Every structure is written in structure tokens, then in C-alpha cells.
Computed example of a mutant assay.
Amino acid sequence: VTTSVIGHGASLNPASIPILIDFTHNLAASLWIGGVIYLAFVVVPAVKRSQTDGYVKASLLSLIIPRFSTIPVVILGIIVITGPFLLYLLEPNLALTLASLYGKALIAKLILAAVMIGIGAYNQMIIQRDNLKGVLVAPTASIAGGGGQSEIDKSVAKKGSESERGSSNHYLNGNAVISKFGKTTKAEAFVGVALLAAVAVLVNIGLPAGEFQTQLQQLQQQQQNLPGLNIANAITTQQQGFTTTNFVENNDRVTLSINPYTPGNNNFKISYTDSNGNPIDISSAQLRYTQTEKGIGPITVDANKASKGIFTVNAAFGLAGPWNLQIEAMQTKANALDIVTEYNLFV
């Protein structure tokens, strides 16, 4: 609960749903990895130390594997649903996520989870299959020999020696199977511990948008010390403004001005007027802009209301190149549609 309350999901607004999803995701992962560790270091050693014969141990293992396997299947279903949904809530831009340090840690986590799934599949499909052959065939050998448990052990030993000479062997020694299963589950448990370490790193890394916003701010400070210099292209450019007018519903006009229209800090001014040139009453305006070439963004900025129908804000283009800008304005008039304009810019 504590990690969910102080995690990335708690920074969202509202935070209740992300926190609940994060808690469910963490709980499912903990049950999965904890179950593997318990199986590897408690259950398997206890079966191995028991005084029963090899056939009984193999029979017990044939019951343990399928019953435990149902737990990861259910848990993985929960993880597969909650994980991507939580990631979408935290950062819907997949390209930005993959380019960030957060994305790299996430990829490492997914690789380790895939290794755990692979080892579990090997236990279920290979070890369990071979173990069942021995469990099912050994009683047949006992009946054919007319004896009891001693006949089974003799049959197992006989078939084991035949296997060493190259013959096929379906009579598996119980201790050998338990030992093999113990090694694979311990390997799976160690991978699970590494997965928990990856999760710890992931929790302590900032979200992709915050990571790139920090880089943009650093670049902005550098460019403020070098006015008129286009750092991305390493050439000086004469500062000049950008102005455009878009016509929207009812022939209303949205006029956008950007100065100086260079990488770094820029002053944005958005004016909303009707067909007669009168200002439209707008309650709020928000800018969302993305560097499409590098996949940085979207960066969201709220504009400040300067007067009726006029909004201004100071925001930064962190890199030169193509930018996609969307401006959404909410009208004060009841039941009026939001005014959304989109611009493809090259800074």
C-alpha cells in the first residue's frame, strides 16, 4: 500500500484509480514472485528431505506443479491488464516512454518477467511431462513384475541403467526429478529477485515527461545566455516572429503569435474573435505541443488570461525542428463547444 500511495500514480489527478491499479499490480506481482521463492526454498527442499521413496516423491511433484501453475496464470492475467493500463495513465506517449530512462528500466523489467515465464513454462511442459511418464509407467511395471514397491524400485533402477546405454527411459527416479525441478525453480526465484530490483529502480525514476522537461529547461537556460543562437543547428538566426490566423466554427478567428519563434523561450499570444472582430469570452486555454521528429512530448502548458479573448504564456521549444501544437480553449458560454486549433510548426 505504501509504495502505491507514494508512487507515480499518486501524482495524477484524480489519484484514486491509478493508486488502486498500482496496488493491484504490485500485489499480483508479489504473490507470483513470493510463491516461486516459497516453492523453491521451502516446498521442494521439504519434499526432497522426506523419507518416502522416489516414486512417492515423483507422484507428489506431479500434483504440486499443476496446482501451483494455476496461480501464476491467474496472476499474469491481472498483471497483463493492470500494467499497460497504468502505463497509459502515467504516460500515453509510447515513443516518449521508450526514449526515456524510465522506458529502458521498464524494458529490463519486462525481459526478466519473460524469463520467469519461460522457466515456468519449461517446468510445466518438460519436467511435468517427463515426470508424469515415470509416475504412470512405474505401476505398470510393478504389476507386470508381480511385486510391490521393491519391484518398482528395481524396474526404475533397471530402466535407469538402460538409459545410460542410450535406450529411452520413461521410469524417472523421483529424487532426480525433484533435484532438477529444484534447480529450475531456484533459478526462477533469483530472476524474480532481479525483477524486484528492476521495479525498485523503476519506482525511483522520474516519469518520461518530467525527464525531458528537465532537459528542455536546461537547454532553455543555455539559449538564454546565447540570444539568437540556434543551438540545435549551431547557426545564428535572426529573431523573427510567427503569426497565423485560423478560421473556426461560425467564422470565428483564432490568431496565434509566437515570438521570437526560435528554439528556447518564446512568448505565445492567442486571440479569439468572432466574425465581427469582437473578442470571444474564453474561460481557459491550454497548449499541448510535441517535437514530432524526436518524439518529445506532449508538453502541456496552461495559458494565462490577459483580457477578454486574449491569452498569453511563456513556453519553450527545446529543440529545433518540426513541432505539432494543439490549443484547446474552453468558452465561458454555457453548452458552447471547445475551440480546438492545430498547427504544424518548424522552429
Rank of each mutant, 00 (worst) to 15 (best):
T2K: 09
T2I: 12
I6R: 11
I17N: 15
I19C: 02
I19T: 09
I21L: 15
D22M: 00
T24G: 12
H25T: 00
L31D: 04
P45S: 06
Q51C: 05
Y55E: 05
A58D: 01
L60G: 06
I75W: 05
G77V: 14
I78W: 00
T82C: 04
G83K: 09
F85W: 14
L87I: 08
N93L: 05
T97M: 13
T97E: 08
S100L: 02
S100C: 00
K104V: 06
A105V: 04
L110P: 02
L112A: 14
G118Q: 04
Y122C: 01
Q124W: 11
I127Q: 03
Q128W: 12
L132P: 00
G134H: 00
A138D: 01
A141G: 12
S142W: 05
I143L: 15
G145E: 13
Q149F: 02
D153T: 11
D153E: 15
S155E: 07
E162L: 13
G166C: 14
S167K: 11
S168G: 02
N173H: 08
S179Q: 06
S179C: 01
A187G: 09
A187R: 14
G192N: 04
L202P: 04
P208I: 03
Q213G: 10
Q215G: 05
A232N: 10
N233I: 08
I235F: 02
T236C: 04
T237V: 15
Q239T: 10
G241I: 07
F242I: 01
T243G: 07
T243M: 12
V248F: 04
N251P: 03
D252R: 01
R253Y: 03
G264I: 03
I270W: 05
T273L: 14
T273M: 14
D274T: 08
D274Y: 04
I282K: 00
A285Y: 06
T290A: 03
Q291G: 04
I299P: 01
V301H: 06
G309E: 07
F311T: 01
F311A: 07
L325M: 15
E328T: 15
E328H: 04
Q331W: 04
Q331C: 05
A334Q: 12
I339F: 00
N344G: 12
